[in-house]
Structure formats: C-alpha cells, structure tokens
Amino acid sequence: MIEVLPGNIIRFIVLVFIQVFILNNIQFMGQVNPYMYVLFILLLPFETPKWFLLVAAFTLGFSVDLFSGTPGLHSSATVLMAFMRPFVLNHFAPRDGYEPGTFPRAHYYGFLWFSKYASILIVIHHLALFYLEVFHFHNFFFTLWRALLSSAFSIILVILSQFFIYRR
C-alpha cells in the first residue's frame, strides 16, 4: 500500500494541473469540456480502503473546484463517483476475483474490461456534474447531450492514457 503512495501523489498533481490549465481552456464545439482528472480515482489500487476512496475523491474534486471557482461542484460529483466505484468493480469482477498485486488497468484486465469500467464511472461523474452545474431540470435533454458529449471525450482521453502512459 505504502509503495504506491508517491506515484499516486504525483499522478494527482499532474492530473489536476492538466485539468485546470489545459483541458479547462479547451473550447471545442462550444459545449465540450473533458474532465480527465477522474482517471486518478479509476487507477487507485483494488485494496484501497473504502473510506480513503471517499476522502481522496473529495480532495481531488476540491482541488479542481478551487481552480475553477466552483466550490463543491466537482467535489460532489467526484465523491459520488468514488462511492459507486466498489459496486462497479464488483459487477465486472472476474470469476475468481481480482488477483492481488494487480491494478485496475488495461494492462492487467484488457481494454474491453477497462473501457466498460471507466465509461460507466465517467458517465456517472459527468451526469452528476452537469446537472449540479445548471441545478434545474428544464433544458433536461440539452444538459444530457452536453454531459454525454463531454463524457465521450473524457472516455477517449482516459483510454488513450492507458495506451501511451501506462503501457508497460
């Protein structure tokens, strides 16, 4: 558990930096804003204690919030996503469970597994985020469209990251 800590801290900082200074400034098609920082939650080890998952999610969301001027918004969406993670992991578990010493990455469990796992959690996160942002349900389908469109881009970025950075 301890030996994966430095790597995770660096990943945390790098992802927040990329999110705040690069992805938040992308103005593509007027509606799309990918939120790739959730990759941090996706890649935490299987054995991460559940309470730590929530605390880490709050810290991550709050850091992004601080830089975006939207207190509580990203925190709330990210905490919801972290709450759902154990259930999603259980649902997609192989017959014998996850082997010790492996991580939730494409490298260990294949791209199909990783895509399904990442997509579900990212869509949950984005739906929560976009509906909390507008905070009402009129324009329901417009918000849905924006959430799904941005989810698609986030999923592409997250899966690409598996190809380029975590290839080994």
Partner: peptide, 21 residues
C-alpha cells in the same frame, strides 16, 4: 455502515460548499 455514512457526510459538505458560494 461507515462507507455510506461517510459518503453522506462528505456529500453534504460538498453541497453546503456549493450553496455558500
């Protein structure tokens, strides 16, 4: 039930932050 309780606690904290903008 620590997982659910902690979730509710942190989520309320986030939402409070949101409303005290």
């Amino acid at each position: 039930y620590h997982f659910i309780l902690l979730f509710v606690l942190i989520q309320s904290l986030s939402l409070t932050l949101m409303f005290q903008h």
